[in-house]
Amino acid sequence: MSENKTIRINNLPVPTWNHLKINDAEYETMASKEELFDQLKKIAVKPENQLPVVHDEVIEEATEGLDFEFTINTDSTIILRLLNKCEEKSDDSKKDIIVKINANIKEGLTLNLSIVNLTKGARIYVTSDALCNENSALRMTTISLGSSKAYFEGKAELKGDNSMFDSYTAYILNSGQFLDMNYVADHKGKNTEAEIVSSGVLNKGTEKVSRQTVNFISGCAGSKGAESEEVLLLDDDVISKSAPLILCTEEDVEGEHGASIGQPDIDVIFYLKSRGIAIEKIYEMLSFAKIEAALSRIDHEETSEMVRNYLGINN
């Protein structure tokens, strides 16, 4: 008989003080990590042209999770949308969905990978590993609006010279939602570049954990890596945890990190209020702006509509 187990996911590449509880995330399950991944439905994706490949995963009773294998032989756009079976009535609060992605991006090619979480109460865990060969790029955009608990992990191995990882995550958390993120760029090739951005809003009773790592490995001369985080805190009972790491064993690199956590800029608030906009509306505008920035990167009208409908922007 299966017993409850706690597996550890979203590990920081280098641990820090245990009392901060940020070295990894605990994930309650009935199996080991390997067993969990073995149970996933395997899907091989080989885009043949530049048209977007859209995969909708609808949370149902017997959701078994997905194990994607992306082989990128042409510039590609892949959009993965996690949705509810019936948006208004379905209760998915007891459902789990795990998505595992492996991508091999061949020389000189770009993969635009977008993950959009529009579930309701389900718990989701999305983990992706990408190998970037010479002159290739992974452009990753994540929007997380749903789930009681959501775990995202994105790792890029910048193995080839001049390869690139550009990750942007936007989120709005409401009413007790929990979001745990871990993004890692391993710079191995020369002149590689990474930019990891996280931008979101915490409302009542929510918690967010953000881990970002730029890892310059000896030999990656000429590489650059940047991390940034912007978090708007709109209620008092919120928790924002951040661990932005820069690891470096190469001299000829540039790495930087910037974070801004707190309430909206008082000058912005003052200006908008002076134009007659109510404070609640201002907060809503600032929140939606973060999601719109992500949608403009995805550049897919149907997905944009879906997200706006979810947020009630079009109503």
Partner: peptide, 22 residues
């Protein structure tokens, strides 16, 4: 290596962080 952690539990805080390596 640079390993900073921030744990913020009130909205009424103003937190800035910057790190550079080169």
């Amino acid at each position: 290596d640079t390993i900073p952690v921030m744990d913020i539990r009130t909205k009424d805080a103003d937190i800035g962080h910057e790190a550079k390596i080169g």
